[in-house]
């Protein structure tokens, strides 16, 4: 049996299964990618796998970029998504630390409430939140900060839940010895727990970033037109009877680019070799 560069044995079984799964996972998206380079007429009469017999076009991409201020909306989406990813993680990491390593009255009850509200459809919160943030309340609706607050709140239950469950797997002895050395909770948190939780933090960061990036409802209701995001702009490409559907295929791909870059940047946390040492502290 052959051996890989890092000395582990090659597993033919793993290779075969992964190739199959990857194909299954890619083919539907490939269909979309191909379709985004076709005219509406071609897409209606030929399957996408017949691309070579029905011709290519860049029209869809051209139309999406031209005159739709896509640059501004990309900038807006980044400004919305980055803080709306980091702030909830920070809030949740502190809370998860308390839930895992500290004792306090009502701990179980609060945690149960957090898990429970995860099933609540966020639509029920829109009206009260518009009242609070809109002109009759704080008057910050339309600004980035309103959307950060909302994404922080709505993303919080899942963040606390996953981070707490991850932190509870960390070896407790490390924290206890830190305390004996006289470290405060604040120091323990930043110097020990955060570095040890990096894989979980990165995993959650990706999820939250994607959710914010692809969010339509909150951005549509709580951002003023000048601040609106890519996904809102994409939806605006449709005419009142759904004209321009073919542009959505191109739009969907354009909106995927940045999430993919984020994933590739953070991917090293999920790939063998780089994190193995860090986790064991």
């Amino acid at each position: 049996m052959s051996v890989m560069a890092d000395g582990r044995r090659r597993s033919p079984f793993a290779i075969v299964v992964m190739v199959l799964l990857c194909l299954l996972w890619t083919i539907p998206t490939l269909g979309l990618l191909v379709t985004s380079f076709r005219t509406r007429d071609a897409a209606a009469t030929h399957g996408w796998w017949e691309i070579f017999s029905s011709g290519w076009t860049l029209d869809n991409y051209d139309k999406v970029f031209n005159g739709n201020e896509m640059g501004t909306s990309f900038l807006n989406t980044v400004v919305v998504a980055v803080p709306a990813t980091i702030i909830p993680i920070m809030f949740a990491a502190f809370a998860a630390y308390a839930f895992t390593f500290m004792d306090f009255r009502g701990k179980d009850l609060i945690f149960v409430a957090i898990v429970a509200v995860m099933v609540v459809p966020i639509q029920v919160a829109f009206q009260p939140m518009l009242d609070l943030l809109g002109p009759r309340g704080l008057g910050i609706s339309g600004q980035y900060i309103a959307v950060w607050l909302l994404h922080t709140g709505f993303g919080m239950p899942l963040a606390i839940y996953t981070l707490r469950n991850y932190m509870s797997t960390l070896p407790r002895t490390v924290i206890e010895s830190a305390k004996i050395d006289g470290a405060t909770h604040f120091q323990t948190f930043w110097r020990l727990i955060v570095p040890m939780s990096v894989p979980a933090l990165a995993a959650f960061a990706i999820l939250q970033f994607l959710w914010v990036w692809n969010d339509l409802l909150i951005a549509k209701l709580f951002l003023s037109p000048g601040n609106s995001t890519v996904i809102v702009k994409l939806q605006g490409l449709l005419g009142s009877q759904g004209q321009g559907q073919e542009l959505l295929t191109a739009g969907a791909f354009i909106s995927m680019v940045i999430p993919m870059i984020v994933f590739f940047t953070l991917q090293r946390f999920f790939v063998r070799g780089l994190t193995a040492g860090a986790v064991k502290g």
Binding site: Q127, R136, K220, L221, P225
Partner: peptide, 21 residues
């Protein structure tokens, strides 16, 4: 004139009006 389009006009206008926006 600042124009905003929303394909889901009916729901959006209702929510926004209820909030005074």
């Amino acid at each position: 004139i600042q124009y905003t389009s929303d394909t889901d006009f009916a729901t959006t206008i209702k929510t926004r009006v209820s909030a005074g926006d």
